[in-house]
């Protein structure tokens, strides 16, 4: 499955709820304000393990728009909108944590 999260973990619990119900084969894509949860040194960073496994993506346009390109935590993979489409195709059912 592909789980998309579009809110910062400082604002909402959607990333935490996603992590509570994600299975071993799923990946996460952070979009919109969700990319704030990918910033390194953040006190709320909760993606280290999944990122190490190569299962966390962030939408590049949203990362750049928010000025955090150089502040991304390790092993977060950047994708553009075409990459977003590929993730949807490759990962089966999409779940949005709106």
């Amino acid at each position: 499955m592909l789980h998309t999260v579009n809110k910062s973990s400082f604002e909402r619990n959607s990333l935490q709820s996603c992590l509570n119900t994600i299975d071993d084969s799923s990946v996460i894509l952070l979009i919109e304000d969700g990319v704030i949860s990918a910033a390194k040194n953040s006190k709320s960073f909760m993606l280290a393990e999944l990122a190490t496994q190569g299962r966390v993506y962030a939408l590049q346009g949203d990362v750049e728009a928010r000025g955090i390109s150089s502040k991304l935590a390790d092993n977060i993979k950047l994708v553009d909108y075409a990459g977003f489409v590929d993730l949807v195709i490759e990962n089966g059912t999409a779940v949005s944590w709106v």
């Binding site: 919109e32 304000d33 553009d80 909108y81 075409a82 489409v85 590929d86 949807v88 709106v98």
Partner: peptide
């Protein structure tokens, strides 16, 4: 691919993101 959009324009980014996604999907032949 189908898309559901829950928010209006300008107030939320949802419609913009969905539009960019749809445009990219069409460009890739979906």
């Amino acid at each position: 691919i189908s898309i559901q959009i829950n928010e209006g324009p300008y107030q939320h980014q949802a419609s913009d993101t969905a539009y960019q996604f749809a445009k990219a999907a069409i460009a890739k032949g979906h």
